[in-house]
Design a binder for these strands. Structure first.
Length: 492
RNA sequence: GGUCUCGUGGCCGAGUGGCUAGGCGGUGGUCUGCAAAACCAUUUACAGCGGUUCGAAUCCGCUCGAGACCUCCA
């Protein structure tokens, strides 16, 4: 294994901590996945890409990583009330489908979106509905430990009791007493002994569709239980990294900590990582505000806020260009800037293959790997690593233009390093749809047209040459002339 | 109201005490039949006020502004 010096910002200690996995060379990573009752929006892309980077980089460092990302397919209640309808059921009713049809439909679409973004599949993608037994067992264990109570077919976590021996609120920086003061009156809370108590198991109302038998009657698991149960099942009672969006810090992850402590008597997570939010007009992009733009809308450009379509790779690069703990503000201008920047990097990747080695090097190319590693080992600072790649682009172009030279050895090193970080670790590649759109017939036709234009230009028949160029531009095809001839591409 | 975070040049976005972040845009140039593309060069910053320090974007205080969580949310 590569000796690493990886530091991760731990949300719990609020400091950079040196990453030392519990049982090297293994590393366990659990990330909260989506609730599948709607298309993924730009906000969903952030944790997916952030932890895809973590996954890829840990693997690169030589760890044997088990990455678990759940699918939440048990509908959580819309309100905190017994009478509330859950999100998936509501969607199912509106679309006249089985709840599980809704789940399947949006799970498939989520997978498609993640594939487009070149997000690697997790090692295990467990569904909450497939782990009802594990969740029931966990409720039992918490009841046995005395940290929960049953009321009329529902089981609640006893936060006040738990707080006597543990600190409920240590992750999100709050305490139970303070939370009392600011707590709002919500319906359906009469059963709880304390407003901060949360449901571990919820009795299903007669009309509730998603329901399972349990020792407490027909019902469904509580909001926070699935992640505790499934992370323990697949990663053990102590695992390395638990990730998710900052908005899950409270109450979701706070509750997970309480559940795990109640069940196992100790924390299960060694490092808590939280990605920040994507904002639009300075505000969080989210379901509740209704100001979200789905990934599919980005890819098609079909949304009021979008000046045009943006490719999946542009979205990916846009997200990687900011540090995961900073907010990232969406704008058309920023996305177009990202698109241009990415093109520059990808162009350099191609140029790199054409470079010829010299006897000696006039420029340093060896430092790139160290600099990029240093950036990533500093809490996955992808924007700094990317800045180093841009510096390397200058070198690559200089060698191409014969302003600098590289020895064979240095050239190989530069190629390997550049490709390693850009393609393997950041997952940035040329758009696949480029090739998809260029079918064979089109290729041949374009070759013919470019040949005709070349002849026209050689005969100084500028009228014909320009006519071809302009006509193609109208068809959304751009001709790019260079010394070595002309190339073409379809505009996005 | 409670807890917390942030405020960097036209835009996005790194940076936590002294050393050019980077990208995009703009401007100038090279190339080109012209244009585009590509490449090269280059421009402006640290919300305000006060303090600590030889020295602060970076530490402390205050003011102003924005946001997040406290209910489902990535």
């Amino acid at each position: 294994m590569t000796t690493s010096n990886l530091y991760i910002y731990d949300s719990l200690t609020r400091r950079l901590e040196k990453f030392t996995p519990a049982t090297p060379p293994f590393a366990g990573l659990y990330v909260c996945g989506p609730t599948v009752y709607g298309d993924a929006h730009l906000g969903h892309a952030r944790p997916a890409i952030t932890f895809d980077l973590v996954f890829r980089y840990l693997k690169h460092l030589g760890y044997r990583v088990r990455y678990v990302r759940n699918i939440t397919d048990v509908g959580h209640l819309e309100g905190d009330s017994d009478s509330g309808e859950d999100k998936i059921t509501k969607k199912a009713r509106l679309e006249q489908l089985e709840p599980m049809e809704v789940v399947q439909y949006y799970t498939d679409r989520y997978h498609d979106d993640m594939d487009s973004l070149n997000v690697q599949k997790p090692s295990i993608e467990p569904r909450a509905s497939g782990h009802i037994i594990e969740q029931i067992e966990m409720v039992k264990a918490i009841l046995n430990a005395g940290y929960a109570y049953e009321v009329d077919g529902s089981v609640y976590f006893d936060v006040r009791k738990y707080n006597e021996q543990h600190h409920y609120g240590k992750l999100s920086g709050r305490n139970v007493e303070e939370m009392m003061a600011g707590n709002r009156e919500l319906e359906g809370q009469e059963e709880k002994r304390h407003p901060a108590d949360f449901a571990l198991w919820k009795k299903a109302s007669p009309t509730h569709l998603m329901r399972w038998p349990s020792p407490w009657g027909e019902g469904f698991p509580g909001w926070h239980l699935e992640c505790s149960a499934m992370s323990a099942k697949y990663l053990g009672k102590e695992f390395d990294i638990h990730g998710g969006g900052m908005d899950l810090l409270f109450p979701h992850h706070e509750c997970e900590i309480a559940q795990s402590n109640a069940t196992f008597g100790h924390d299960t997570v060694r490092y808590w990582m939280h990605n920040n939010m994507i904002t639009i007009n300075g505000q969080k992009m989210g379901k509740s505000l209704g100001n979200f733009i789905t990934l599919r809308e980005f890819f098609s450009g079909n949304h009021q806020e979008l000046a045009r379509a943006y490719s999946p790779m542009t979205i990916r690069f846009f997200i990687l260009q900011a540090h995961y703990r900073s907010t990232l503000d969406f704008s058309n201008e920023a996305l177009q800037a990202a698109e241009k920047g990415l093109q520059r990097l990808l162009q350099a990747l191609e140029t790199l293959d054409q470079l010829k080695p010299s006897d000696t090097s006039t420029t340093d190319a060896a430092g790139l790997a160290d600099k990029c590693h240093a950036a990533l080992q500093d809490d996955f600072n992808s924007p700094v690593a990317i800045a180093h790649l841009f510096d390397a682009v200058k070198t690559i172009n200089a060698v191409r233009d014969r302003r600098e030279t590289l020895s064979g050895e240095d050239l190989k090193k530069l190629r390997d390093t550049f490709r390693l970080f850009l393609v393997d670790i950041f997952g940035l590649t040329a758009e696949k749809d480029d090739l998809g759109q260029k079918d064979e017939l089109l290729e041949e036709l374009m070759e013919l047209i470019l040949e005709l234009r070349k002849t026209a230009r050689e005969n100084k028949d500028w009228e014909t040459a320009d006519k071809l160029r302009d006509a193609l531009q109208h068809m959304n095809i751009t001709i790019k002339d260079s010394k070595d001839g002309s190339t073409w591409e379809i505009n996005h």
